[in-house]
Nucleic acid binder design. Structure first.
Lengths: 334, 334
DNA sequence: CTTGGCACTCACGAGGAAGGAGTGCCAGTG
DNA sequence: CACTGGCACTCCTTCCTCGTGAGTGCCAAG
């Protein structure tokens, strides 16, 4: 049904349309790409592609534009992720390596992605639940006051101040450290509750009351409040493509303000090691139905870019992949 | 030169224009507002106002619209900041009081402001430099490793891990606490360097090497890296007024992504206790020349809203003031 | 100083008409 | 059977014209 040339025609349509933002007609297409056939033949192929739902035309006498389904086919079968050039790679690496802390890594990644792709960039902070405990420090602030500081391997730090029902001694606090420390060190945050489940039984009775308080705070810090944060940038790029979303800029901006929506966007990745593309209607998020999203995991979090369905998938996919890899390496090595 | 009626005419023009987004003519104006004079008279006044540069008309036979200068006069002399209604106040208060931590306070403030004003809201995190030290904790992580945790009265927490050149004992750390604690407690962060300047001399010689290391880190945390953060929200509201900035939405979005620009925006306030308004060309930031900014300090930081010059100054000023006050109280009380 | 009257200006929208890009279909050809 | 050139047709886009009306500026009278 879809022979090679038809696929080639589809590719040409997508590429031309991405380039010019104008419906592409049979004549110009036959000329510009060296298809070696006449416009009439191209027209026949186009008719076939349209029957299958890969392209449409806005009105009778206009050229063709790809449908979401067409882009999907293009992404799945036609676009080879073009590798970045050596200078590009170096630029990415050196730019990211200049980061001084976690915040900086994320901020730089957002900047980098939005500049590379000319789209809106979204980067999730490393998810607490997927990272490992590097250190839990218990600080004795006052006789009945503790501060818990949790440091993860992704460089993230969470702290809580805790009022105790009773006064505790320095010795008690030291004991606490000794019971929590070994169990938590190196544990993934999702596994922590299990690792701590036998604590109340294993601890000396005198410590029980304090321990329960501390335990509940630790658990809530670890689990209850994942507090997923997201950085976003390059929204100004949306106006660059203003022609693509006729008047639907508002819902896009609104969606971008919803942390939850963004997390879902980034989190819906199945295979954690490959670039993932959601095209137009495939998006579960109302209001992003006219956009495409290219995402990838970098390990303890995800990142990606968002733009009009009429985007340079090939380029964006490679940019996202490259940045995700570098960020992943950076955090793993840090 | 500008008698009372002319001012009244200006007010009417501003209010009508803000309302309808259409140039307002002499006839409709004379009718809708009970000026008690004929359109012809209004025309004369308008001509005068135009001579003075308070209003213009887009083309010969269109109504008048206020200039930046006109809005300025309106804000300075004509608009009384209307107090919020009791239910509004309660709503603000209860919404903000639900916040669980500093991040939450800021996030909620942004939401609140953008919803109240239907504009873009900007809230600065409490500036470290303007807040006071509540507690400096020194944690002995490993023989030659310390963690410094700085807690400020605005609920902010900063921590640094520090590798020492030599091993230190628990006793040393305890001594360190004793020398730093009293000097820092309650000191404003900007004053801290002065408060600590005599430390090297006052401390026992044995502590000197460690102390210098710690001191330099503390100072850098306090001063060198103010790390001003900003939260922003309601950008989608910009599209609501898309008609106001014909095609200048891009530079606005771009400016909003520049932390530095935003800080300048919020920081340029002279009198810390009143609402401050920057109108159109008054803005020092290129790209925000078609917008107005309403800001106010809440104590250790600032907040405000940004929108088209054609905005409800009166309402926005009162909203900003109200939120700033509540946030200020909240942080002071916390 | 205010008012009604009046001529004038000019953006805006409706209504065509010409132009042209692009299509679908068909009959002919290798 | 696939490809090609030809041709009639569609209908969007652009440009022009023209009427309409809101609004102005000015002037003379109250």
């Amino acid at each position: 049904m879809l022979d090679d040339r038809k696929l080639e025609v589809l590719r040409a349509i997508v590429e031309d349309f991405v380039d010019t933002n104008e419906p592409v007609g049979s004549k110009t297409l036959a000329e510009r790409h060296g298809l070696g056939v006449s416009p009439a033949t191209v027209r026949n192929d186009m008719a076939a592609l349209e029957d299958e739902g890969f392209i449409t035309h806005p009105h009778t006498s206009a050229g063709r534009i790809p449908t979401d389904k067409g882009y999907r086919l293009f992404v799945d079968r036609l676009s080879q992720v073009k590798p970045l050039s050596q200078p590009e790679k170096r630029a990415i690496q050196s730019f990211l390596e200049g980061a001084v802390d976690l915040d900086d890594v994320v901020t730089r990644s957002v900047r980098l992605l939005s500049q590379l792709t000319q789209q809106v960039a979204v980067v999730q902070y490393p998810s607490l639940s997927r990272s490992e405990v590097r250190h839990l420090e218990i600080v004795h602030l006052a006789p009945n006051r503790l501060m818990l500081v949790l440091i993860t391997d992704s460089g993230r730090v969470e702290q809580r101040v805790l009022e105790l029902p009773a006064v505790v001694s320095d010795q008690d606090v030291s004991d606490l450290r000794n019971v929590f420390g070994p169990r938590l060190h190196g544990a993934r945050l999702v596994d922590a509750p299990r690792a701590l489940s036998d604590l109340p039984d294993a601890a000396p009775p005198s410590l029980r009351p304090v321990l329960t308080s501390v335990l509940s705070v630790v658990l809530s810090t670890l689990v209850e409040k994942p507090e997923e944060r997201i950085a976003i940038g390059g929204t100004a790029n949306l106006t660059r493509h203003a022609l693509d979303f006729p008047m639907t800029l508002r819902p896009v901006l609104e969606a971008l303000e919803e942390q939850v929506v963004l997390l879902r966007l980034i989190g819906e990745v199945n295979d954690p090691t490959t670039v993932h593309v959601k095209i137009g209607e495939e998006n579960s998020v109302e209001g992003l139905r006219s956009t495409s999203v290219v995402t990838m995991n970098y390990g303890p979090g995800g990142l990606g870019v968002l733009g009009p369905t009429r985007m340079d998938y090939s380029g964006n996919m490679s940019s996202v992949r490259a940045v995700a890899r570098y960020v992943g390496d950076l955090l793993a090595g840090a």
